[in-house]
Design a protein around this nucleic acid. Structure first.
Lengths: 176, 176
DNA sequence: TATTGTTATACTCTATAACTATA
DNA sequence: TATAGTTATAGAGTATAACAATA
């Protein structure tokens, strides 16, 4: 199946003949490449036994240790029950620790374990290799330019630096 | 606010905190913006009662009408049973038609209905508005440059033009 | 009564496998 | 026996709501 050409006027029943050009805009390329990059990154971190959400959680905890699960859920924009499941996973692997707060015993203060910190350290190397893989088509100058342009777009769109939108609750647009 | 290189080196301030810098690379920005753009697009097309997978299917059918579901599944890189569900949805809304092939009665030839073609026509306008929304931070020259750079990356990464990777089915991280 | 974390539950999405009807 | 489409089923992911402990 390699026929590139398709006759517009087929014999037989009259077709509506709709416009059918492929999307070439930057927005579609962003979606396409973003999904692709996410998949590739997922494959890489899977070698550490982690998922991309795991990474984000580890990173967020490392940024400000001792916070409650509620605070974490608020920052990431997810529902608290989801944090429970994610922390359960990381706790089961010995990467994070829940410590009952002495001030308010309802709270769980979250900390990275030593192993969690070590593993997070490995992630930086993986991220660098991933970056180099994805951008291997570009030279250094082009990479800088791309990074700058993407940064402008991300800032204007109101994206929180370092927080993946995948954590956020779906606005709408589910199947009807 | 221009990002003048990523000069976040050790400026001399003693950091008591663990290694917890947010990712600033282009690869993460791609993932972040790609997910964001996909969400926004989903919200827009939801007003037509459609989902992004629906759009991709309509577009692919319009590109070459009359193909079988099997052929469609192969092109998109999904399992045939998934095409059944997607076509069911579109068929139920009267946007596509299944026609038993007269040559091989096992096949279903897929066509857009008149309404399907009309709706797909509306999508182009929506896509243009979406593009303009996402890229509103950039002027025309910057948009061209961004599109060019993204095109280079997409080509090198082997992405099929116009086909969203979300359709692809890669179980354990294999890439074709 | 309000809040934190948890559990129970349901729903969406998507893949695998079994089944049918043709060939 | 082989193939196209379908149905049945299961699993991952994530949301909502009810619940227990604590304030």
């Amino acid at each position: 199946m390699s026929s590139e050409r398709q006759a517009a006027d087929e014999p037989g029943e009259p077709e509506p003949a709709p416009p059918a050009r492929p999307p070439r805009g930057a927005a579609f390329l962003l979606t396409q490449l973003g999904t692709h990059a996410a998949e590739r990154f997922a494959v890489r971190v899977a070698e550490l036994g982690l998922t991309p959400p795991d990474i984000g959680l580890l990173r967020t905890i490392a940024t400000r240790p001792g916070r409650s699960q509620r605070a974490l859920a608020a920052e990431l924009g997810v529902v608290p029950s989801r944090v429970v499941a994610l922390i359960d996973h990381l706790d089961g692997k010995g990467l994070v620790e829940r410590r009952r707060s002495t001030e308010d015993r309802r709270n769980h203060e979250l900390y990275l374990s030593e192993e969690g910190g070590r593993l997070l350290g490995e992630v930086w190397g993986i991220a660098a290799a991933h970056e180099d893989d994805i951008l291997s088509a570009l030279d250094d100058g082009q990479r800088d330019r791309l990074t700058e342009l993407l940064g402008l777009v991300a800032a204007q769109q109101g994206l929180t630096p370092g927080v993946h939108p995948g954590y956020r609750n779906l606005p709408d647009g589910r199947r009807s």
